[in-house]
């Protein structure tokens, strides 16, 4: 009973914190304190969070190196745009279509390729991502390489916030469920988990499809915020960008993925003022962080209430000792 009560209190606290965060930002936007520049970067941040959290489910928790995440994002972006712009459906239908289309693609790609291991899987997913891009380039219905221009801006802060929160919640809850334990066991030792009676292929595919669905969601958000989508945006370099966030945050850490997504977006924005050397600095930061912290910012730890609590109590103890 006590445990249940504690859980309930924690749940309420979480809801309150999120609601406060949402309202605060919404307040800043309506009052104009957060100008367009910050709003754009905020949107990038949320989209990057969705991408990196969903990829961290595949790469970090399931241990399957995928380099085709941008491909799923492309599928989602195009599916939603076809629905909202060409068929005149509401945004919510576009979002569902995006998740569905990306999920189906994830399934079709995942079932055969997830038998592959390590670098072979990486190159196969990379190849699939590129195939998606080349195919889109040759579809005249969506204007081929020119892409779709003039997409109505439907992605607003409430949508972005909800999408990021739902993605995180689904991934975190999945990891903490029995499915999640099976998924992590696949990462730790595939043969051993198979011997324990876990259908490893099934769990790999589940993680892959869910990851792909959220990449599709990110694609839908992206398309309806940035006015234009074209196949070139979703090339393999975009997949690398997402992978960088996941690894920088720490494989197997959702909070790490979120922190890294925020960090990378802010870093990109901050480096805008140095056009000549921005990419050099970016590359150097990447190398230096990896050399000094190869397990990523968070390792496989999570930043949670307990961590804050521990840091807090640790500080207090030190204080007492002094």
């Amino acid at each position: 009973m006590q445990i249940l009560k504690n859980k309930f209190i924690r749940f309420c606290a979480d809801v309150l914190i999120l609601a406060a965060l949402f309202t605060l930002v919404q307040y800043f936007i309506t009052t104009g304190l957060l100008n367009q520049y910050y709003q754009i970067n905020l949107a990038s941040m949320c989209i990057n969070i969705i991408l990196s959290v969903s990829l961290s489910l595949i790469n970090g928790f399931t241990g399957q190196l995928s380099l085709g995440h941008a491909g799923f994002m492309a599928v989602g972006a195009y599916a939603s745009v076809i629905l909202t712009q060409m068929l005149g459906q509401p945004f919510i239908a576009g979002i569902f279509a995006a998740c569905l289309a990306a999920g189906v693609c994830g399934f079709i790609i995942g079932v055969p390729t997830l038998r592959l291991k390590g670098d072979y899987l990486a190159i196969a997913t990379l190849a699939f991502g590129e195939i998606i891009r080349v195919t889109l380039q040759n579809i005249d219905y969506v204007n081929g390489p020119a892409g779709v221009l003039g997409i109505t801006k439907l992605t607003t802060w409430p949508w972005l916030f909800a999408a990021a929160v739902i993605t995180t919640l689904v991934v975190v809850n999945l990891i903490n469920s029995s499915y999640g334990r099976a998924i992590i066991s696949v990462r730790e030792d595939e043969v051993a988990s198979e011997l324990m009676g876990i259908n490893t292929t099934k769990y790999k595919v589940i993680a892959f499809v869910i990851g792909a669905m959220f990449a599709g969601l990110a694609g839908a958000m992206y398309a309806h915020f940035f006015y234009i989508i074209k196949p070139e945006t979703f090339n393999f370099l975009k997949s690398f960008d997402i992978l960088v966030m996941v690894v920088l945050g720490g494989l197997g850490s959702t909070s790490g993925a979120i922190i890294a997504a925020i960090f990378i977006t802010a870093l990109t924005a901050a480096l805008q003022s140095f056009p000549a050397i921005r990419m050099i600095l970016y590359a150097l930061i990447l190398i230096i962080v990896m050399i000094y912290r190869p397990q990523g910012l968070m390792g496989n730890k999570e930043l949670s209430r307990q961590t804050f609590g521990r840091i807090w109590s640790g500080r207090k103890n030190e204080h007492n000792r002094n």
Binding site: N59, L248, L251, I280, Y282, A283, L286, I287, M290, G296
Partner: peptide
């Protein structure tokens, strides 16, 4: 770039390789 990472995960080395790749490209552009 790679030797310090020899005993860590391969994916960390992969990211470093991406970093080195970007570095070479953009230092040449610079």
């Amino acid at each position: 770039a790679y030797r310090p990472l020899r005993n860590s995960t391969r994916i960390a080395a992969l990211i470093t390789a991406i970093g080195v790749s970007l570095f070479l490209e953009y230092i040449t552009i610079f």
